[in-house]
Every structure is written in structure tokens, then in C-alpha cells.
Design a protein around this nucleic acid. Sequence first.
DNA 1: CATGAATGAGCCTTCATTCAT
DNA 2: TATGAATGAAGGCTCATTCAT
Lengths: 212, 212, 212, 212
Amino acid sequence: MTYNGEKRKIKAQYTKQKIYESAKELFASEHYNDISVDSIVKKAGVSKGSFYVHYASKEALVNFLIEDYVAKIDTDYINFIHTFPKETPTEELFLSLIAKITDLLMDIGFDKIQALYQGQITKNLDTETVTSHNREIYKMFSRLLERGIERGEFKTDMPLNILTKHLMMAMRGITYEWCIRYPNFDYKTEALTHFRLLLKGLRERNTIHEFK
Amino acid sequence: MTYNGEKRKIKAQYTKQKIYESAKELFASEHYNDISVDSIVKKAGVSKGSFYVHYASKEALVNFLIEDYVAKIDTDYINFIHTFPKETPTEELFLSLIAKITDLLMDIGFDKIQALYQGQITKNLDTETVTSHNREIYKMFSRLLERGIERGEFKTDMPLNILTKHLMMAMRGITYEWCIRYPNFDYKTEALTHFRLLLKGLRERNTIHEFK
Amino acid sequence: MTYNGEKRKIKAQYTKQKIYESAKELFASEHYNDISVDSIVKKAGVSKGSFYVHYASKEALVNFLIEDYVAKIDTDYINFIHTFPKETPTEELFLSLIAKITDLLMDIGFDKIQALYQGQITKNLDTETVTSHNREIYKMFSRLLERGIERGEFKTDMPLNILTKHLMMAMRGITYEWCIRYPNFDYKTEALTHFRLLLKGLRERNTIHEFK
Amino acid sequence: MTYNGEKRKIKAQYTKQKIYESAKELFASEHYNDISVDSIVKKAGVSKGSFYVHYASKEALVNFLIEDYVAKIDTDYINFIHTFPKETPTEELFLSLIAKITDLLMDIGFDKIQALYQGQITKNLDTETVTSHNREIYKMFSRLLERGIERGEFKTDMPLNILTKHLMMAMRGITYEWCIRYPNFDYKTEALTHFRLLLKGLRERNTIHEFK
DNA sequence: CATGAATGAGCCTTCATTCAT
DNA sequence: TATGAATGAAGGCTCATTCAT
């Protein structure tokens, strides 16, 4: 390993990064199908050949991009619950989490999220990574539900994991709605309203009749 | 006028149909963006020029495709409620409608619905027809909710139209989920479960605590 | 020749005429290259097949069109000179003729004339007919020049036919200018000014009268 | 930087040149509208993609073609007058300029000029560059007229700029004539004859000298 | 005579990928 | 590593002409 070799490696890394950042920005500002290798390398100020030195294909880069988004989303949830006092009602915690998620996604940017959802349905994108991201949210949802049930706030005859999946599906549904209604859709407010509606059905009560 | 060419007209109609069917099949088997006029005419066994004799543009044909799906969907809802006895609980009616919708969409075919949802988020497609289709479901949902409230089965502090919109959003969300999880997603069952969950929150009861 | 045969002939003539008229209008309203057989038959309300029954090709029809314009232009020149009293100065006659020509061409319409000039330079059009039209103007110019010379108003050391050709070329040049400058070009005024300039060079030196 | 690829650059330039030359030849041998990217690349022996590596569009290439013609035209006028002795009659200077212009245009080639005039009347071409070229000729004409008037050789009651415009129009008219009469039109001779005629009208009346 | 469906070459442009330098 | 010229299939669409009815 010579000094020169080290330098080259660093420079190469820098080039790769430039390509990556350019793609990221384009990904944010345009529709998925409008992004071309040409536009990426032009923005990055590198040659097309360089692109293929660092990434096997356009699709490969896009996959990295997705993973990155996912990683960012995952970042902050982890210790979320611990910031709340123990006596906080679980429903309140839940709605706070929803608010946090919507804030985060809006922070990431509508365009990227739309691209993500487009990608998912177009199947051009690897859903593996996206699914893995959801695992983090899944864990949060699951924990909160568990907490609610343990504390006697929630009651359900569904298995916990099934219930969790449905709440996640609801969250995704709202996000899809945001994607197709933007900008005429108040993402956060609608999400909160929707989850209030959903959680209502989980509340413990003394009613008797159970639907079939 | 003997030069009316009845035979030719029939043959022409056949050609148009062939193109239509080919597009339909491709639409079902491939991703929306992968469908080309070339692929359509090749499959139909006609010339490219022929395509443009019968359809103004590729987009026009796709719109016809969508409209037909939508028309098919609309067909059967109309007299749906009337097939049920008066004493049927509204929640049961509701779930039957959900079952009907999912049956219908599955009947139309996963591929077309996916294309529809793809189109909506990609904004390449005219959402006009789709929106109008939803109006029919909207009316059904709204009517059922009204019925439930009137009969003292449902209770809500939300305005009716807001509530209706949220239920529709939920339905769309489930359908989106179907689109991205297919074939590992039991559309009908999941939809029913999800709406059971949702409707639970609407049930009249004697509980006191109201969230915030 | 049966009655039916007669009727058919008449109807056929009518169809041909309809096609002709439609082409004429399109010729007037659009650029030459934008006229398609499709647009012509659509406007005429006949079938494409009919077009080829009556005209061998698109080009053939266009040639007929040109001939028609030319014929119209020719119509009125013929007895032009005779409407003026014998004592009218030839220069005045000349300028009147220029005014008449420009009036006529403007009456025919800028678009058609432009198409004509376009056609001439693009060589898609048969220049035969156009050339023949010019023969009429040629005759007029030639006669007037002769009159001027005979009456001692004009003087030139050029042969009459050469001189005539140059005046015609000037006329065409002005018209070309009109075509490329339209609508910011006062065709008639500029033509008159230009010919005043040209004719000045022909005036006999000891003549006194200054035109207008 | 050893990956500069000097050789490749040279080869690329050669390719670009090949495309350019092919377009030039087609431009010369065919009608403007018949030139296609396909025909150009076929003649050049390169791929269609290559075309778009070197030129943004077909129109862009055509514009380069025009600009180059124009640039060539502009080249030599500048110091033209100074090559003549001070005592040279202005009319003689004028006719020399006309001769120079016709020589130049013939040198550039009939085909290109025809394309230019075609483009101007078809309005498909940007007239910007063409108009700017004319500015140079305009200046020359204007200067010569001024000289003639100052030296008492010319006399006119028209404003200088109007007169200049008419002379330019005459020049253009002759060139248009050349375009539509070629090859049966002696461009240079006719232009000289025509301007002799025109300038005759400008001569001061008491001057004696008769040009050649 | 009239019809209009059918043709297919042609149009300009885009783009992911390859490879000699 | 880096370059960018070169590729060529593919994209949607136009249009003069033909021909079976």
C-alpha cells in the first residue's frame, strides 16, 4: 500500500460520494423515471465511465439510496418512548409517535417519500430494504400496543403481531394518500385523526356485544 | 350505398379489439412503463400505423383500459344494500360491502389494480375517471355510516364526510398494501379484519372516557 | 350514358371540387409542409380513398392549386392599360400597375403567396405554371416600357426584354421581402417606393415633369 | 493525468467533423426537409447515438451550418472600400461590392444559399444569425451611399436608411431569383445590371460621366 | 365511384451500458 | 481509477399511399 495508493483510494471514495449525493438530490427533486445516469453524472461533475466504476448499474445506486432513507428514518425512533413519563397514557404515546413519524417523513421530503412509494409499487426498487426499515416502526408499534394491553388501556382479541401489522398498514395507507393528494392533504393532521379513530376501537370498555 | 363495407367494418372492429386485448394482457403482465406501442402491435399482429388508426395515442388507449375497469367496478354496487334484510346490523352490511369490493377488485385482477395505483402515484394517468369511480364507493360508505348512526349502532363526534373519507383512505391503504405485498397478502381477509378494527371504534357504548 | 351515369359523374365532380376547395383553404391557412392528405380529406368530409380517385398524388393537387392562383392573378391585367387616358404619363401607369398587382396579391392572401414562394424555392412545386403566369405580367411590363420609350419618357441603353426581366425580378424581390417580413412590411407602399426609385433611372434626362 | 485520452479526443473531433461534413453535403444536395438525422449518420458512418453526443439536436447542427456560412460571408467586407483609390467613383465602388457579394455567395455555393433563403421563408430557421449578417452589408451600402451623396455623385430625396433598405431588398430579390432560376441565371451579371439600373436613378443630373 | 382500414418506412430523440485510452 | 465517445435498441408518433369491399 503506497502513499499514492492511499490518495487514490480517498479520491475514489470522494468521487463515489459525489455521485451518490447528486443522485440523492435528483431523487428528491424529480420523479423516479426521470432520473438518468446522464443527469446524475452531470450534476456530480464526473464522467459516465466513473459511474460504472463505482456502481454496477443505475438500479444498484438507487438501492443504496433507498437504504439510506430507510436508515435515516430508523435513526430516531429507538429511544423515543423513554422520553415520556411512565404515567403517560399509551394512546397519547401512540399519537405522539404518529406525529413524530409524519414529521420525520415530511422532513425527509415529500418527493423522496413519493419516489419511495412509487418505487415500491413499480417494483423497480428492492422492497427488501424498505421492509427492513419498517421493522423498526413495527417494533415501536408492537411495544406500545403491548404496553397499552398490559396497563389495561387497550383490549383486543387479535394476536398482537396481526394487530401491529394492521396499524402499520394504516400508516402506509395514509402515507400513500399523502403521495397522491399532495399538496392538498394535511399529512400530520389526517394521520392523527385516523389513528384516533383506529385506537378508539382498542379501548378497554365494559360493553358486551362482540361482532361475530 | 353498397360501398358501405359492412364486412370491413367488422374486420376493423376486430383489429381494434385485438389491439385492445393485447394491451390489456400486456397491462396485466408487465409494468405500466414497460408497455410500448411496439409491444402492443407486435402482440396484436398489426402494424404500428393501425394502432393510430384506432387510437389517438398510447395514452388514449390506456385511458380506455382504465375506464373500462372502473366501469366494471361501478356496475354492481348500486343496488347492493337493498339485497339485505332491514334488520341486518350495519356493521355486517359494511363488512359485506368490503368483501364485495375486494372480490370485485380481485376479479378485475391484481395487475390492473396495481397499474391503476401505479398510475395514480406516478401521475401519468388521468385520475379523473378513477376519482369518479371512488365517488360511488364514497356514496355507499356514507350511506352505511348514516344508517348506522340513525339506528344507534354507530357513534362518532366526527362530521360524516370526514369520517367517510377516512374509511375510504383505509380502503385505499389496504389496496395499496395488496399491490406491494402481492401475492403474499390475503386481500379480502386483511381488509375485513382491518375494517372490523376500524368499525369497533365507532360502536355505540356506555363507556365514558373520551380521548382528549 | 344513362341518367345514373350522368348523376354519378356530377356527384364525382362535386367530390373532386370539395377536395379541391378544402385543400385551397388549408393552403391558405397553413404552411405548405403542414398540409397533409389527412387534413384535406377531413376538411372535405370525404375518404382518403376518394382523394386518390381524383388526384394522382398530393403533389398533383397542389399543382392544380398553383395553376388556379396563377389564373386568378392573370385575369385582371389584360385590359388594364386601356382604362387609362392616352395622355397619362407612362410612369404613372406603371405605378398604377404595381399598385394593382400588390392589391391583387394581398387580396389573394399573404398565406397563399407565401406558400407559392415557398413552393418555388423548395422546388416541390411545378414552376411551369408560375412562370407562365409571369408571362402575363411580363407582357404588361414590356408594353408599358415600350410605350414610355416611344413617347420619349423613358430612355435606356438596355434591350427591352432584358430591362423587362429586371423589373419583374424587382417585383418578385419585393414580394419575397413581404413574405419574410410579414406583417411588418407595407407591401404596397414599399413596392411603389421601390419602383419610383427604379423608374427614375429610366427617365429621359431633359424631361421636366416630376412624378407626383 | 494520463487518462486524458488525447487520441480519443482527436478521433472524437473527427467523428464530429464527419457528421458535420455529411450534413453539409446533404444540405447541399437535397431539400432542407429531406435531411434526416438518419441520413446524416448513415452518410457519416456513425451511430445515431453518436450524433447526439456531438450535437444537441438536428436543429442545433443546422444552426451551426448556417452560422458558418454567415461567418464566411461576413469575413471579407470589412476593409473592402479601402482597397480602392480615393478618386474611384462611388458607383464603381458600389458595383464592385455587388460583384464581391455575388462572388462570395457563389463561392459558398448555390445550395447553401438556397437553403438559407428557404429557411428564411419557411421560418423554420432562426433568422437571427442571418439578419445579423445583413447588418454588415447594410453598413457597407449605407457608407457607400453616404459617400456618393457627400461627393455629389448621388442625389436622392429619400432618407438614407430607407434608401439603403431598398437597395438591400433589391440584392435579396436578385438572390431569391438566383435560387429559383438556378442554373439558368447568371447571378453576378444580372446583379450588376440590376444595380446599374437602380443607381442610375440616383445619379446627380448634371454629372457627365457615364459608367463604363 | 367511394370507403377507410391497413401499411411500414420514416421522423427526432433518449438512455443504460461498453470500452479504448 | 477516470474518461467520454460510441453504441443501437427503443420510445411515441406521422403520413402518403394501397386495396379489399
